[in-house]
């Protein structure tokens, strides 16, 4: 109620309300401009926030589009359970694109070696799922503060008929006038939370009481030390000779493929404590993802090909 009073007396929004209003505007614009949009749902906090915003944008109607999950097969079991519970409570359709199927069909080949991941393989599965389901706009939880290549993304981001992004030839985006016009075979990515930072996400989750997977909270887990972060031990991980499995109290800042998502040591077991911890943090959240560490332009190169 206090929040309301401040709003009403001064006739301006605080920054979280303004970000929320902007995201709702973008989601409604997607619904109005496209025939068959979906939300790309990874089970991570950003796509959870986007889904929450979609619930608000169309209330009292249901979210009018499906959630699409690109399943690497290397999941945290917690993520899948969370996804299925959410789908049920929202009463929306779930579309799963399976990397395992792409491998079985010979569309992609599994990487070999110790640092093998299925991260790059997701691109093919994602683009296939977009094509077979005739999706003309995939809504993502990408934020411009995440990574330098993302800093140039538009709210409505055009992809050519190979699903590729051309950062040098993007449509200019002025005021709040978005251009989602496309030709056959092309599609769009839309990013309603472009202007949010990691801190904004946590403050918002805290304020809105949004449910998130337990993996974000500090918990005991079997882990392996690898390139400066704690990688969860799982059946998919090939141990090196000198590596050992330890039990640590950790939490995850981002959730991706279980083979590459590093945890950090932490005692933060509530959203509020996490928000406090994040505000004191000296490393970007993607600093613990080995997919981004491969080279300085790793993200840009993947994004050009059609990555999230």
């Amino acid at each position: 109620m206090l929040k309301l009073k401040i709003r009403m007396s001064k006739y301006y929004l605080n920054y979280l309300d303004e970000l929320e209003s902007e995201a709702i505007y973008v989601l409604r614009e997607v619904w109005a401009q496209f025939e068959n949009p979906v939300i790309l749902f990874s089970g991570g906090k950003d796509s959870i926030v986007v889904t929450h915003l979609a619930k608000k944008a169309f209330y009292p109607a249901k979210i009018p589009f499906a959630l699409m999950h690109v399943d690497t097969g290397h999941n945290f079991p917690e993520t899948i359970k969370f996804r299925d519970d959410l789908i049920e409570s929202l009463g929306v359709q779930l579309i799963v694109g399976s990397v395992q199927e792409s491998i079985d069909q010979g569309r992609v080949a599994e990487e070999k070696g110790k640092s093998a991941t299925r991260n790059a393989l997701q691109i093919t599965t994602l683009l296939d799922a977009i094509e077979t389901n005739k999706v003309d706009c995939a809504i993502g939880g990408g934020r411009r503060d995440e990574e330098k290549a993302r800093a140039k993304e538009r709210f409505f981001s055009h992809r050519d008929d190979f699903g590729q992004w051309d950062p040098k030839n993007q449509r200019p985006e002025l005021w709040n006038l978005f251009n989602g016009k496309q030709f056959e075979g092309e599609h769009f990515r839309a990013f309603p939370i472009s202007n949010w930072t990691e801190m904004d996400i946590w403050n918002y989750i805290n304020r809105e009481n949004i449910e998130i997977p337990s993996l974000y909270f500090a918990h005991e887990r079997e882990v392996v030390r690898r390139s400066g972060s704690w990688i969860p031990y799982s059946e998919f991980l090939q141990l090196e000779e000198n590596e050992e499995v330890l039990t640590k109290k950790i939490r995850f800042r981002t959730l991706g493929d279980i083979t590459i998502t590093g945890g950090i040591e932490s005692d933060a077991d509530t959203v509020e404590k996490i928000a406090q911890e994040v505000s004191a943090m000296r490393q970007t959240e993607r600093g613990n993802r080995s997919d981004d560490k491969r080279s300085e332009t790793a993200m840009e190169d993947r994004k050009r090909q059609g990555y999230f």
């Binding site: 411009r144 503060d145 330098k148 290549a149 800093a151 140039k152 950062p167 040098k168 993007q170 472009s194 202007n195 930072t197 801190m199 300085e296 332009t297 840009e300 190169d301």
Partner: peptide, 20 residues
């Protein structure tokens, strides 16, 4: 931010930055 820019040492498009 982007590869071409770093190589040429110039900014080529609008990039967004955040601070609080």
């Amino acid at each position: 931010g982007l590869r071409d820019e770093r190589e040429q040492g110039i900014t080529i498009d609008v990039a967004y930055r955040y601070f609080t």
